[in-house]
């Protein structure tokens, strides 16, 4: 008796190894250089904004928050103009990891569903990517806070 399930598993394994042989590898080195330089430059821009705000007499905390707001604004603008996704094709994580990537994900989701209306199109979809990000950010940080409260008491 031929065990069909087993045969199928062997077929799947054989095929997976064939796919792995044929499948092109991403250009890791080129991608890495792009990500490092692009991400680094976005952070430098942030540092320049931050420094000039401090020189204008802002407190460290306020300057940092204002820097985030300005970067988010710039990313939103570039996304609206249709440039951010073009840049990200090359820069990859260099444009995804910084807060500008977070802003891009929010704006892109909102923009995409404009044609489905301003309430359940834009309003609902704006959180398609930002939602999970914020949920995990809040969940983890709040959990850390709770641990602190209970460890302290």
């Amino acid at each position: 008796m031929v065990d069909e399930k087993k045969l199928n598993e062997i077929e799947i394994q054989e095929y997976s190894s064939l796919v792995q042989r044929v499948n092109p590898k991403p250009q890791v080195f080129k991608h890495s250089v792009w990500a490092f330089v692009a991400g680094g430059l976005i952070c430098v821009l942030g540092q320049i904004i931050n420094n000039s705000l401090i020189l204008q007499g802002m407190s460290n905390g306020d300057a940092s928050a204002s820097t985030a707001v300005i970067l988010i604004f710039l990313a939103a603008l570039l996304t609206g103009l249709g440039y951010y996704d073009e840049l990200a094709k090359y820069a990859g994580a260099g444009t995804i990891v910084p807060i500008t990537g977070f802003a891009n994900a929010i704006v892109a989701s909102a923009l995409e569903f404009k044609r489905e209306g301003y309430i359940f199109g834009v309003g609902a979809r704006i959180f398609a990517v930002a939602g999970p990000t914020l949920v995990f950010g809040f969940a983890v940080s709040t959990l850390i806070g709770l641990i602190r409260v209970f460890v302290a008491s």
Partner: peptide
């Protein structure tokens, strides 16, 4: 500095 605060 911003190199650590700007990434998510």
């Amino acid at each position: 500095g911003a190199g650590a605060t700007v990434p998510l």
